[in-house]
Design a protein around this nucleic acid. Structure first.
Lengths: 228, 228
DNA sequence: ATCACAATGTGATAATTATCATATCAGCTT
DNA sequence: AAGCTGATATGATAATTATCACATTGTGAT
């Protein structure tokens, strides 16, 4: 937990703020805390009070929610440049989702009251913030719509391509989530996700090597993602 | 299409803005257009340029999107006090959804460039705006998650209860959408929605009289909504 | 190393939902 | 009034997905 004002040179800075006026810089430097989480650690608990505005500096997380039936549902995944403090922060005082690290993850937390105080005085800053929040929530909604259109095979293909294209930018990567978590994300059962991935392997679309996954036939996987 | 600055007394005003400073009042009075749409008319076309910030004054609308396969998906419904210009407006220059009136509807349109100009100078106004946008998109995401947890019967029950509780605040109302539109909203087929509603009728949960629908056994409908 | 436990993997069967076919009904036009 | 069209309605069947049962593999703790 350091506070060396390294954000002055942080790559993320430009994404959050149009200008970096004196009050915004002070907010970031004096009132931010950096925290590191290991894979599997919970960063935010559903139901806890929102005290900070949080964003990802590095790593990968999942946003999930416990249904009334006790079953978890995964809302979305987020990597740096995606916001984490998306939902709730400006419309609720309580988080209505849990954020869990899927990999070693570093977050920056800015005291929410102080951020709001700056935002009230600085429209430019607030507009930048709103742009980001709007963009990130849009992506969640549209992605969920996209998944809803597809059948089991298409949904599984969608998730694998999501990690390949959007997160790792490689056709070979270590899958950061369990089969069960894929199921929680796409709204199918764990068994069927496993079965589908086995089929992809048998069909020569995927190769597994421990946690490693390799997309052998990307074109076919994309076709499956579109047309089942 | 009138412009008599009636927003000064508009009930909605308090919801959008914390304070109504001079610049905000001028924005609303000088740069707003009021438009009326009949049931079925399209207010915003998917793919069109975003020129205005739009909100509902009265009526009811649906937000929908045409999938790559040509099939419509309904994202959400909105009534006054829900925003319409939720998604896209602050993160895109093009609407990625269509807004259609489900009933006679009046909207207010504020020139987006002028709104942005005010927002840049007025952090308080922008914060109020962000609160609203965040609240509305949160509701869409959580509602979709809720529907995803349920089976066919539960989803149909959910939609009927949504209109009863949230829109009409009555157990008897005129259903503003077709069976097909319920299907497009919950991701099931039209036939199965029709079948399910017929079952509800046969089971004494619902009564139909033309377009009118009456919830006879609300407790049972709620139970079906929760546990299928 | 062994035990315990969770994750992966696979098959058989049941339940759910989609598809296709066809009928009736309501509203609208001529 | 007749004819057209889209919405509602219903049944039979096919396709998809869930459930249950059980085997195997992997992983962490002692």
């Amino acid at each position: 937990m350091k506070n060396d004002c390294s954000c002055e040179h942080c790559k993320l800075r430009s994404l959050f703020f149009f200008h970096t006026s004196a009050d915004v810089l002070e907010l970031m430097c004096e009132n931010k805390t950096e925290r590191q989480y290991d894979k599997g650690e919970v960063i935010i608990w559903e139901g806890s009070e929102i005290k900070d505005f949080i964003y990802l500096k590095s790593g990968l997380v999942k946003l999930s929610r416990k249904g009334t039936d006790g079953k978890d549902q995964i809302i979305s995944f987020a990597k740096p440049f995606d916001f984490v403090s998306l939902l709730s922060v400006f419309s609720s005082s309580i988080y209505n989702y849990t954020v869990t690290a899927l990999d070693s993850t570093i977050i920056c937390a800015i005291d929410l009251e102080k951020l709001k105080a700056v935002a009230l005085k600085n429209g430019e800053f607030t507009m930048g913030l709103m742009n980001r929040v709007s963009e990130a929530t849009d992506r969640i909604i549209l992605n969920n719509l996209d998944i809803r259109r597809k059948n089991l095979k298409g949904r599984v293909a969608h998730v694998i391509l999501y990690f390949a294209h959007y997160v790792y930018k490689d056709t070979r990567f270590e899958l950061p989530i369990l089969r069960r978590e894929i199921a929680e994300y796409i709204g199918m059962t764990t068994e069927n996700v496993i079965r589908t991935m086995s089929e992809f392997r048998k069909d020569g679309i995927l190769k597994f090597d421990g946690k490693e996954i390799e997309i052998v036939n990307e074109r076919l996987l994309e076709s499956v993602s579109e047309h089942g």
